[in-house]
Nucleic acid binder design. Structure first.
Lengths: 332, 332
DNA sequence: TTGAAAGCGATACCAT
DNA sequence: ATGGTATCGCTTTCAA
């Protein structure tokens, strides 16, 4: 079995307290003693047990992150940014995907027990009351891509301004009949995007309207299905999708059906995932990695007690125009 | 502060041992006593500390996974498959990305201290001797996309057969001068793919050759740079890339340069990431999620002691033909 | 500078 | 069925 602090102490002929001091090079230990301890530790291949250490220090040195899924590019990037910063701050990262899990709430609570704090990404992961209970218990918490709760830190990407810019772009191209694809009730992000679109239409000096097309999931398959529905009847001027995956699914199906883009119909997405570039999809770029990184920093402030008042960060987004809306002015 | 087992015991008027029994509903406790304990626990919002529990049980109920990066689609999918199965088996998942980290070896060792076992993905994460030391210390270990070590479990995707199929496909199309893009020394997967290509050429009944073009990273930028080099001189018949990202970078640059595909030059990738579909990239599909899932299952067998002899899994891959090599027969 | 001993929060064995 | 207590591996006073 592994060597413990006692084994080292015995071999070095000192007390466990001294070994502990040496291992954390914290206190003043006589160099000679120190060497003896280090020699013994090296000899026994001693590695301090995190468990014992954490129990004594009453902290985990670990952060959690909860997200719905890792299959799309979006959450993977968020997690990546989070892990990078957390690691920099000397904290381990626990992940929890709620996809296809019926006991998500319990799993999150269990996770909170092994972390000093955690980040919850997206509203489709855990119920609000679970978040509220965690917050009430004093768990350090940061919400990402979730509607801000006054007392809880949050990080979100800007939706409204970019949705308006996107809509104006479509209006400028002559589009009048828009269809928004995606259920605004599934996520506040989607709701905000739709809201931005509607506002832009209201403010426009031309008559235009937007119809809402609800879908089950924000994935390629649903996008393709929506196209299937519309191929029978008249196509709108533009499909404004809640995310890139939906839009990509639509593009594939439209091309397969021989529909000419962007002359016949225009399609836009949201996120700017890698595939969007290759598909020539006009979309809105989100700083996904930065969302995660910012959340990690906020969480660290909470855990370390550097800050007590809640903060709400809003990161900028950017319209990216490609050939799915216009052949004219392309943005790389 | 949080309630401990002692607080509950005091409030319920029982010993901590009884509370412990109730919390794990393990032993037989008189219903009446049980109710009293549960009432006290609920009242105090008692949640057993993982730390204490793990220390006593001398296990973590957590698995780790080490990978180079999460930005590409490949590792994200592997991690996803891993997390799903690990969660099913009641284990938490710790992640560690070695990208841009100089103390990767230490980080891995530290991670091993808080896990019952871990998975190491790709050879570009940690040194072989670190893996060997971990194995020697008795840490349960599974290697993914790494050259198998006799005594350590491993999960890999088939490279050789698909590389040969890919090469034959190119030869059938009339390609004779091939360029393999990617450094075989960076990963055994890449080396195996190159090996498969070379073998197929040797076995072919036509004269053909492959040149090796080394690159810094397997990403889009490097792919684009390679194209830049070749635009000056003569293009080969086909670029066989070590992964999709390289190939996608090449496609973008080639199209920008107005080079006609696939008539002028053919390009192939490896992985079949989402963007490959939209770019019409001929590639080899890997069961990425299944790699992670299989690793999680193997690891669980090791940790639970169900199995002691090492196993080496080889998962099948599949050639996917698209328009980057031929306009004729497309595979969806 | 070093050691002894009291936690930290649970589990599990041995009594009763 | 329940309680007492040693134990897990470490940190952290308090003394010496």
């Amino acid at each position: 079995m592994r060597a413990t602090i006692r084994d080292v102490a015995r071999q070095a002929g000192v007390s466990i307290a001294t070994v502990s001091r040496v291992m954390r090079d914290s206190e003043t230990v006589r160099p000679e003693t120190r060497d003896r301890v280090l020699a013994a530790a090296g000899d026994l291949e001693f590695v301090p047990s995190h468990l014992g250490r954490q129990l004594a220090e009453r902290r985990h040195a670990a952060n959690g992150i909860v997200f719905p899924d890792l299959s799309g590019p979006y959450y993977a990037e968020v997690v990546l940014g989070y892990e990078a910063v957390a690691a920099e701050l000397g904290r381990s990262v626990l992940i929890l995907s709620t996809r296809g899990r019926d006991d998500a709430d319990d799993a999150v609570r269990a996770m909170a027990e092994r972390c000093d704090g955690l980040v919850v990404v997206s509203g489709r992961t855990v119920d609000d009351d679970v978040v509220a209970r965690l917050a009430a218990r004093g768990t350090s918490l940061v919400l990402v891509a979730r509607p801000p709760v006054d007392t809880v830190d949050s990080v979100n990407a800007e939706n409204d301004a970019s949705a308006r810019a996107l809509t104006r772009h479509l209006l400028d191209l002559g589009a009048r009949r828009l269809v928004f694809v995606g259920d605004p009730s599934t996520s506040p992000d989607v709701a905000e995007r739709l809201h931005g679109v509607q506002e832009a239409l209201t403010e426009a000096d031309v008559a235009a309207d937007v119809e809402i097309r609800h879908v089950q999931n924000l994935d390629e398959q649903c996008g393709a299905e929506v196209v299937g529905d519309y191929l029978g009847r008249a196509l709108p001027d533009a499909f404004v999708c809640a995310n890139d995956e939906l839009a990509l699914g639509m593009l594939g199906r439209l091309r397969a059906a021989g529909v000419d883009l962007p002359s016949r119909v225009r399609v836009t997405g949201w996120d700017d995932v890698m595939a969007a570039r290759y598909a020539g999809l006009t979309t809105v770029r989100q700083p996904m990695r930065e969302l995660g990184a910012t959340a990690a920093r906020l969480l660290d402030e909470l855990i370390s007690g550097t800050r007590t008042h809640p903060r709400h960060e809003l990161l900028p987004t950017q319209l990216v125009v490609r050939t799915s809306t216009t052949l004219g002015k392309e943005t790389p």
